[in-house]
Nucleic acid binder design. Structure first.
Length: 304
DNA sequence: CTCCAGGCGCCTT
DNA sequence: AAGGCGCATGGA
């Protein structure tokens, strides 16, 4: 196969200049790849034979990680790894982010317990569509629905021959041409008309997902909230996981549990109170803090 | 069997 | 403004 057996060494995207190669190694600190890929922000990564297989845009990629590096193997030679370093935010200094968190016991516990958890920077359409499918579904089920959607509507893309064929995430135009029945056949139930209508809105140009990047977060949120099937929680997921707005703070059942249990253990806090708290307590990177609280409650502290 | 899952939209107060 | 309910599907 084409992949070289000796990955080129790159400390960051900027220094990765060894020409075309099908693999590259990036040195990282505070990066738990497994936790990040399993934390419910992305739904297409698969653990197989000691590595993570996935698709970023139209590129299949396989990843291996150890404590200090991530090595990526592509199906075809790559001259510029920016698409990958951007997706994984390789060059982000997490300690600088953590320094902006409030210095309180719950955040300290969550950061300590989930050391290395990172936010990805995903494609807006894939993120939007995936989270429309997420409502009242468990993460394992969201994965299954998204996988079926990609197999049936996504473009086939090259993958390493020893692995299963790969598919890009379906374009808005392709899903806009689907029928509601075809989408329901992917087990998405009542979410099918929401996904279909949103795909059509994007295709018809009623919303420009690229333009949202340059808007203030509140305006970008309002645009997303106009889409069918998109409420505050899903809008904030897209604002945080795709656009990287640092104060987008998705509040779901797990985050409510975390805030209630960790910050208001004695008295019952109303949803409005928790919302206000989430918007004022966690600082300029509150979205990152949210992901730590979510993951901490879901994997370590709560489980119930 | 019942309960609930990284909610939303719509209908009541 | 705030609260209740139905919506598909499947796992616990």
């Amino acid at each position: 196969m084409a992949a070289s057996s000796t990955p080129s060494k790159c400390s960051s995207a900027a220094t990765c200049t060894e020409g075309d190669a099908a693999s590259a190694t990036f040195s990282v600190r505070d990066y738990d790849l497994a936790a990040s890929l399993e934390s419910g922000q992305a739904f297409r990564w698969q653990w197989l034979d000691g590595g993570w297989n996935g698709v970023i845009g139209n590129r299949w990629v396989r990843l291996r990680a150890d404590e200090f590096s991530i090595t990526a193997y592509a199906a075809e030679p790559v001259s510029d790894w920016n698409w990958l370093t951007h997706y994984f935010q390789i060059d982000l200094d997490f300690s600088a982010v953590a320094a902006t968190f409030p210095d309180d016991l719950p955040i300290r516990a969550a950061v300590s317990a989930c050391r290395g958890l990172r936010l990805l920077r995903q494609d807006p359409w894939e993120c939007l569509a995936s989270f429309i499918l997420s409502s009242t579904k468990q993460i394992v089920q969201i994965r299954q629905i998204v996988a079926m959607l990609c197999e049936r509507f996504g473009e086939s893309i090259p993958a390493a021959p020893q692995f299963a064929p790969a598919f890009a995430f379906p374009t808005p135009a392709r899903l806009a041409r689907a029928t509601e029945a075809e989408l329901r056949a992917c087990k998405m139930g009542f979410r099918a008309p929401y996904l279909l209508a949103t795909a059509r809105s994007v295709t018809e140009g009623k919303i420009d997902l690229e333009r949202l990047r340059q808007l203030p977060v509140e305006i970008a949120r309002d645009e997303l909230l106009n889409l069918p099937g998109v409420g505050r929680k899903i809008a904030d997921c897209v604002l945080l996981f795709a656009y990287g707005f640092p104060t987008a703070f998705p509040v779901d059942v797990w985050v409510i549990k975390a805030l209630q249990k960790l910050y208001f253990p004695r008295r019952r806090a109303t949803a409005k109170r928790l919302r206000h708290f989430s918007e004022t307590h966690f600082g300029p990177n509150s979205g990152y803090a949210q992901q730590y609280l979510f993951h901490y409650m879901r994997t370590k502290h709560g489980k119930r």
